[in-house]
Amino acid sequence: MRDMFSEDRERLKELGPGAMDKTARNEAKRARLLKERLANNTALAVLWVAAGITVAALILIILYVVINGAPMISPKFIFTWPHGVSAKGGIWPTIISTLYVTGLAMLIATPVAVLAAVYLAEYAKQGRIVTVIRFAADSLASVPSIVMGLFGLAFFVEAFHLPMSMLSAALALSLLMLPIIMRATEEAIRAVPRYIRWGSYGLGATQWQTVSRVVLPWAMPRIITGLVLAMGRAIGETAVVFYTMGMAINMPLTPLESGRSMAVHLYLLAVDGINLKAAYGTALMLMLMIFLLNMFARYIQRRYRKVR
């Protein structure tokens, strides 16, 4: 930036001392400006195109799934059981299994993650322990899902002798959700204005009273947003569920029963290629669920932003 006029100066040097008149200078300046404007417009156009490609990819994928899957969606498809080798019929048990395992994972992960975030944001002094915890959370968030799946298999199923079940899958999934919820909650708590805490302390509240009755309620909308996004992640997770929940089609009642999630169902249908129609339908249902969750998160955020 500092050398913006270096080209002009050099041009003038080339032209010699006699050329320091206005016309030469103006000419150089105009040429430079033209060049700059051209570069600017080209670059901005490229950025527009890049953003366009990203959106086009999204629209392409969504349209593809919707167009192929929409004819499949009917009460019969949603509410009946699949039967036969080619999984004709519906996907009802897989929907229930998915919701079951996600809900269970949520119940396990949420209290731990929220309290951990409370510790990090409200109680902990910045120091080595906090650094270690943050690093661990970041690492946990980046563990490849297949590694998480193998861990779930080796730890919950084999070492703890839990059956391939909702519970094993939920425990493994909760490890996956933990860092997501933790980060969202910590950011939410940090966004709570400090004077609100002071007001609470000024009234003689203890720290727990302040956290539980003032800070957490204030941070709740953003925490819920984080929860919903973590749920979306868990619903679409395949590799983890594959090794901890199995793939038997089953309607789970107790947490110790196995089942097949929608994502696993879609994977099996797509790989076998026997019943692509049902695969499209399942993909659409899966995306619809995640889309609705995203919309819900967005709605909560917008609604509470208006209030404050």
Binding site: L58, L266, A270, A283
Partner: peptide
């Protein structure tokens, strides 16, 4: 565009794989 990008992040990897296969 921003919600679109966020939505793209939410699509499960099986769906991407399915899209890739078909």
């Amino acid at each position: 565009i921003r919600p679109a990008v966020e939505l793209l992040a939410g699509i499960p990897s099986v769906v991407y794989g399915f899209f890739g296969v078909t």
